[in-house]
Nucleic acid binder design. Structure first.
Lengths: 127, 127
DNA sequence: TTAGTAATACGAAACAATTCGTAAATAAAA
DNA sequence: TTTTATTTACGAATTGTTTCGTATTACTAA
């Protein structure tokens, strides 16, 4: 499958994708500024990874001006779906329920969030 | 932190850990047989990975007889917890609820599983 | 005892991801 | 125009993972 690349970003690539998903269009500089709020990294490192992401088809870029503008090509929905499925298979013996309970148990979720999930479960029932 | 290794197994290591979590004690041969039900791999490859896991402290082994007996040292619970947290931070902007819904929406979960999760959510409410 | 089988140990090759130095191109400022 | 700063491009070093060939050791059966 040629779309394999689209769903298997590395961790560094994921960090960048998250920024692009949220911001839409970004220069390397903008992405780099956000990245380095949390961790150390050289500018050319960020640049290189984004160039590789372009080669892989994870992002597209507008090169009409000297400073290129990047945006995500990999869909947030599909990427998340793929990562979750892999984790379920990989570490939870294929049981989505076990992953869900692990996720809810240890990440402090607000009452609102829990209500939302209940609503969601009821909808699943009615199918 | 020295326990970092315990919670960041590679994918190959996770495959093996899953087997050890389920079976308890295993020889390399046993693990290898199970692994190769799903994918190709040479015996010495499986062996090598298990040896590295031993160096890293992910597994322990009994070497009193020629055929070594391996078992998991990394706790299933802690490893899963760590992986889920990372995924939530990494790909779901920190929202456990979003991950949960993604997980439930795309993995076909049985009615029993869904009931179990509902029960679990109600318990969470009562805390 | 000898031949064959199955195990471990070890090292190195192959591959992928990350990091960064340096050069070249472009644009902006002096 | 000349200098300075910013950007891209490229290549190479580093690190980590996976894979496997080969040697050695121990056990089993002929």
């Amino acid at each position: 499958m040629s779309s394999d690349n689209l769903t298997k970003p590395t961790e560094s690539e994921l960090e960048i994708l998250q920024i692009l998903w949220e911001k839409g269009n970004c220069t390397v500089r903008e992405v780099h500024e956000i990245l380095t709020q949390n961790k150390e990294a050289g500018y050319t490192t960020t640049l290189k990874i984004m160039q590789i992401m372009h080669e892989k088809g994870l992002v597209k870029r507008d090169t009409s001006s000297k400073t290129h503008i990047y945006s995500a090509l990999a869909s947030q929905q599909k990427t998340q779906q793929h990562l979750v499925s892999r984790l379920i298979d990989n570490a939870f013996s294929g049981s989505a329920a076990r992953l869900v309970m692990q996720a809810l148990g240890n990440h402090t979720s607000s009452k609102d969030e829990i209500e939302e999930i209940k609503k969601y479960l009821n909808e699943l029932d009615n199918k």
